[in-house]
Design a protein around this nucleic acid. Sequence first.
DNA 1: CGGAGCGAAGTGATTTAGTCACTTTATGAG
DNA 2: CTCATAAAGTGACTAAATCACTTCGCTCCG
Lengths: 220, 220
Amino acid sequence: MAGQLSLSERLADDIMRIIRVEGLGPGDQLASSRDLARRFEVTTPTVREALRRLEATGAVEFRHGSGTYVGPGADRRLLANPHGPAATRESVLELVEARLVLEPPIAAAAARTREAEGLRLMELSVTNALHPPQGDLRPAVHFHVALAATSGNAVLRETVQALLDVRARDQIEIRHRYDDRERDHAEHVRLLDAVRAGDPELAASLTAEHLAAIRSAVGG
Amino acid sequence: MAGQLSLSERLADDIMRIIRVEGLGPGDQLASSRDLARRFEVTTPTVREALRRLEATGAVEFRHGSGTYVGPGADRRLLANPHGPAATRESVLELVEARLVLEPPIAAAAARTREAEGLRLMELSVTNALHPPQGDLRPAVHFHVALAATSGNAVLRETVQALLDVRARDQIEIRHRYDDRERDHAEHVRLLDAVRAGDPELAASLTAEHLAAIRSAVGG
DNA sequence: CGGAGCGAAGTGATTTAGTCACTTTATGAG
DNA sequence: CTCATAAAGTGACTAAATCACTTCGCTCCG
């Protein structure tokens, strides 16, 4: 009753092990399907099944004609379901209300820890919002993710990232409902100041206000 | 620059659509690979790639020789990465600390809402902890998930579920470090009472204490 | 009548072999 | 030097089998 793992599941784990021992990060190219097939002594369709599993979790990305590459998500523990249910008015509201519960304490934790790299990302996100870099193809770190990162806890960062990824799937139809960039920016600046000042209560309450505004805009 | 989705990605979405329009839930059997291949006019390896994607997210499960079945996770928006990084002492601690930030406010929300079905699950979980049902194959709902469900917000429930799924992957090696079932049970009972009484502050602080105990046991 | 065992049918698991489509890069003509 | 083009490498997908496992009905024996 032990090895209940399917071949493609073990294969996927083996491929992740390769990625980790070789220290590959997002954007790095992986060995070709044929190479992997030879290396593990299986056929290419089998390798492809394993890679599809990893693709679903954002661990790898396919580029037709070019190769397979390491994706974001390779080292994340939490993910948004890429095949999750479609958005409804209720589900969008439910998501905002969940963020209203979860993100204020995260902001408070960030104001306590003030992790350096997270602070840098918050500043970067705030400035980029005004001067969107043109030739820059960097993944445009989201402010709330940077805020969570400032807590110094990667699980909290990944949680916020996953919540925003869920929103991203929904937002295609919702975007126009609440897209007040200027107000967003102003609130982000105040939030950044509160974190810089090391004021957990203020950071939490500002986050709550910010999300409450979004909630009412979305139809709460 | 529109349809950048791979065939297996679209196929996976189509299969999820079938599951939803036919109202299939966890445990229900899906059409066979060959049937799906015929229906979508592709070959079986292609269908299998799509199903592997869904398997990775817990949306479907394969049973060799029997069929393909709908899994838990089919309707979840948040997931634990099945191919996430291996557990370390630091990562386990980081996970507990994240829960310490996230779960107290969830407990408070539960004490405010007191959703009926969630309360029932909490009671079930508490009683089952003492009298483990023998012939029962139900997925043994975890107390903290039931607590989150009592908030009435499915995103909060899925968040806690995902966090616990991450722990489950790690816990294989850690289980023996903190397995004080009796103490757990006692704290769960008190927590249930606080929620029943509609006391958000007490529910939050009890949750914080509970998780802090786990943290120090794990080596904080 | 009832249970044990056989076996066929259905299913997933994997292979083999090949074709097509796309991208990148090197080459060579202008 | 520039640009078109050929070549090589890659993923995408097909086609047709074979193997392994599960299930279930049926028969046969008790």
